[in-house]
Amino acid sequence: FTKPTIDANTWEDLEDALLKADFGPDVTDSVVTDLRAKVDRFKTTDPKDLQRMLRETMEERLSRLDTTLHLSERPAIVLVVGVNGVGKTTTIGKFAKFLATYGRTVVIGAADTFRAAAVEQVATWAERAGAAIVRPQHEGQDPASVAFQTIEYAKLHGTEIVVIDTAGRLQTKGGLMDELGKIRRVIEKQAPVAEVLLVLDATTGQNGLAQAEAFIQHAGVTGLVLTKLDGSAKAGFVLAVQEKTGIPIKLIGQGEGINDLTGFTPHVFAQNLVG
């Protein structure tokens, strides 16, 4: 955006920037069309105005949804889901610490009974966060029963918040997606689910939308967590996710440390997205 007036190059640069930030061709077209209309309407010629308008458009589009977590039930049950390796377990560690700072008591359910050393990993995070943990009683235990026992624990001990870790699964695996539905149903026999958080990796491209749609269908997602925003990926795909699904981003992960988790601020995110 260093050129003095808006010309064909400015528009091409804008399009390139959006595509490189993973907005995808459809959203890029719609954003560019929007901005062309605005530039015409306001008879703007300064590329700086264009950039400001872009940031405002983004911020406005990202601000439409309610980004607050709803954790008023007792216990408040939070189920964490997503594809393999996106950062579910790490997010749970950070989230437990985040809740503990607000004086909440937390128990984590180690319901990833599948992946190698997943239980040990989440146990390390529970210890770091000062949270309790309920582990499977035997190897390969049904994850739904671990979730069930975690809620029993919370009820018995008066623990305020229950966070359930689940094994990573690709959204195309029918059997594994059905298993999520089962975990949810088993939980709901005891208490309502407060939040189902879908963890999305910022490095993901257009597949993020397919992930969101499938997890919404099978697990009833209520909020998105965007991880690995400390890298060079911009995560522009979440705009399409938000607009097509109406599910808000509720948490942002920006590192591997226990404090690297924040709430979602449209202003900051838009700034990071478009400069």
Binding site: A21, D201, T204, G205, G231, S232, A233, K234
Partner: peptide, 15 residues
């Protein structure tokens, strides 16, 4: 590298 990665593949691969 994860097959789901988006445009960041280039920056990451170069790095």
């Amino acid at each position: 590298i994860d097959a789901m990665i988006g445009q960041d593949a280039v920056a990451t691969a170069k790095a």
